[in-house]
Write a protein that binds this DNA or RNA. Structure first.
Length: 316
DNA sequence: CCATCTCAGCTTTTACCCAA
DNA sequence: TTGGGTAAAAGCTGAGATGG
């Protein structure tokens, strides 16, 4: 299946890039706003909070982040969609079907705005936002980034002593970095006495290696400005990883200006349905620091500290 | 009303087999 | 040659049952 939104395509599959995504939005009338927003649980609010902050998530990703079971997540998300709390869309590919991508619907956007003290959006504005999201070429990239963090959060919830303490989306971390770099995300992962704060870069292979190396140079500028964190590069293949390592080593023969580790996506275990076993492989020894041949676990990339792990992922 | 689980059915196109 | 039926792929949907 798709790993929480990452389209895995068999040799028989074909994506229809020109087919518009199927968008499913329940309109919200003023009269039934109160009716439809009634009965929302604390967990529903958590779902809204995640979607407000990270824009779009699949049912599997939300299951990992918020729900205990995938089937219940799908069931509840369908109810929320039916009420107009959530909107959803997906592309048609062959063969098979695609997971729905969920985002805030008209009711959900209003309820979340009311809960956070923000200005209430008009339903037409929400509809426009959903349509833009559904048609944006950047949405699949965003889903890939969200999938990494959702998998990490889901994994942490099933392993004592591990936690994803922070997960900042692209726009928030970009603002914090004063525009010098725009990482795809920032996270803090704890494993017992070790905490790794890292920038995350999700590479789909569409950028040139020179562009990636230039990015590293920008991170060096950021480090000079006082923000130095390791960069985790998610690369599409082992060969891409090999060439990236070679390019960085050519540019900085002794040592890269900031710590960098890479993981080739084609080394990941085949994705599965189960929440508990949700791709633990991203925390396994798949991460290769620049200048090393031995791969390390995610926790091994972190310096040992005596700090207590931070709280689990907070959607707020 | 919510949580959890199971399971039959659906989606969509191609390849293949068989009968007319 | 043409047309109909079926399997395959990969995963989602939604109904139903059970229990809190």
């Amino acid at each position: 299946m798709s790993e929480g939104g990452i389209v895995r395509v068999s040799r028989h599959s074909s994506i229809h890039p020109h087919t518009p995504p199927r968008v499913d939005i329940r309109p919200a009338g003023k009269a039934d706003l109160l009716t439809r927003s009634r009965g929302l649980t604390a967990r529903d609010a958590e779902v809204l909070s995640y979607l407000a902050r990270h824009r779009v998530l699949t049912a599997l990703q939300l299951a990992r982040l918020v729900f205990g079971s995938y089937s219940h997540a799908r069931s509840r998300l369908a109810v929320l969609h039916e009420r107009g709390v959530l909107a959803r869309f997906r592309r048609d590919i062959w063969p098979g079907s695609q997971p729905w991508r969920y985002t805030l619907g008209p009711i959900g956007a209003i309820v979340h705005a009311a809960a956070t003290g923000a200005a209430l959006p008009r339903p037409a504005t929400v509809t426009e936002t959903v349509l833009r999201l559904a048609h944006s070429a950047h949405t699949e990239h965003r889903l890939g980034v969200n999938d990494f963090f959702a998998t990490l959060a889901g994994h942490s919830q099933h392993h004592d002593g591990r936690a994803l303490g922070e997960w900042w989306p692209e726009n928030e971390v970009g603002a914090t970095c004063a525009g010098i770099v725009r990482p795809d995300g920032y996270g803090e992962y704890s494993d017992h006495d070790r905490t790794l704060g890292f920038f995350y870069e999700y590479d789909t292979g569409t950028e040139t290696l020179d562009t990636l190396v230039e990015k590293v140079g920008k991170y060096a500028e950021l480090a000079d400005a006082g923000i130095c964190k390791p960069i985790l590069f998610h690369l599409p293949s082992a060969s891409r990883e090999h060439h990236f390592h070679a390019a960085v080593t050519r540019r900085w023969p002794v040592k890269p200006p900031v710590p960098i580790a890479t993981m080739p996506a084609d080394q990941l275990a085949p994705p599965g349905h189960h929440i508990a076993a949700a791709s633990p492989s991203i925390v396994d020894a798949l991460w290769r620091p620049i200048g090393h041949t031995r791969r390390r676990t995610l926790a091994d990339l972190a310096p040992r500290t005596t700090r207590q792990p931070t709280a689990r992922t907070d959607a707020a």
